[in-house]
Design a protein around this nucleic acid. Structure first.
Lengths: 206, 206
DNA sequence: GTCTATATTGGGATAGAC
DNA sequence: GTCTATCCCAATATAGAC
């Protein structure tokens, strides 16, 4: 759907791109079709020639990003490494994807807050299989003694979910607390290292 | 401003209460004065007799919750305990407040996402003093050898911020992933215990 | 495929009767 | 203090010319 390699991107793809930025920054209700059209350089009415409605456009924006996310995650999961190294690999794959596409994180957060009011599909249901797989992995490693035992492995996932997403979804807010551009190379490196080392400490069975 | 103890709550306070719920659930842009007025049982025009504008109403909703939050936090911070016990005390105070007022968490998250577009004040600037104080505390304890040393103590704060807020802000979403009501007593207890034990593991210097 | 023009709805806010 | 009536504006969406 989204073409690469050619000098010229289609108007449709330009719309998708600008819509992604607008929805991520201002949310579904805070974004008007005028905003998106203006960013592309056309009129609102011309935009509706490419997408039948605002909801449809929003749906396609989400669908595309979700597809890329699944691709990247599947790649990391399929790796043959085990133990804490696998956790690190998946954490880093998630981190790198989020750093590459912070718009995605912001969209997911907004959907989580609005509990899918604007999106047709149930996001948690879509992500559920991967979630369960991760939970089963932790349980197995705990049983094997490679990870420190916790009462409820799912809690580790919730914490990781929050730690990973919040940094990107709330980046402008955190910038005000930290006096550092969260997207600078240094800040990203530091955050990445901290998350992995934090998990290593917490999971270390010794 | 908000009266307690009397059987009858003023219309003004009812409006504040319903507005809090609506803004937390649907966001600023997603909430219309009609929604709030309907919840109270009056007309939109009557609501505007008590508050001059939507922005003003939103501001007051936030101001009130922020005041309570500061109260509770100051109470926990003033405790004479030290070391990891102080961290636990503050984490638990935050957790309990958030569990008591999840609307507050959702509002803060929305503000962080929108970077204060609807609120007059800069939220990160308001919270900055407490943030810096917490960072200094971690640094001191690391220097004293009571906490495990991390390159950047502020990273611990970011992780805590995410772990604490996300559970409540994204509760409906997490319910779909966990098959448990996040606000049930059991779930809250488990989450509370996990966060504190997770931090204890990560900060343990041995 | 983009435009102008227009229909229609819903939002915030004001004026004034009761 | 609450209501009805009204104003104004912005938003989504459609129709039809070019």
């Amino acid at each position: 759907m989204v073409e690469q390699g050619s000098e010229h991107t289609s108007t449709r793809d330009q719309i998708l791109h600008e819509a992604t930025q607008c929805f991520a920054e201002q949310g579904y209700d805070g974004t008007s079709l005028n905003d998106i059209a203006a960013a592309v350089g056309i009129r609102r009415q011309s935009l509706l020639h490419h997408f039948p409605s605002k909801e449809q456009l929003y749906g396609e924006v989400f669908e595309y990003l979700l597809g890329v996310w699944f691709e990247r995650l599947a790649e990391a999961i399929s790796s043959p490494v085990r133990g804490i190294e696998k956790v690190e690999l998946v954490l880093e794959a998630g981190f790198d994807f989020f750093a590459d596409k912070p718009e995605f994180v912001r969209l997911v957060r907004r959907e989580a807050l609005d509990s899918g009011a604007h999106l047709g599909v149930d996001l948690s249901a879509v992500l559920r299989p991967m979630w369960d797989r991760a939970g089963a992995y932790f349980r197995r490693e705990m049983d094997a003694g490679t990870f420190r035992r916790y009462d409820d492995p799912e809690q580790l996932l919730v914490t990781g979910y929050g730690a990973l997403l919040s940094y990107f979804s709330d980046a402008p807010f955190l910038e005000g607390l930290l006096d550092v551009d969260p997207y600078s190379r240094d800040a990203l490196d530091a955050r990445r290292r901290h998350i992995t080392s934090f998990y290593r400490m917490a999971l270390d069975p010794t």
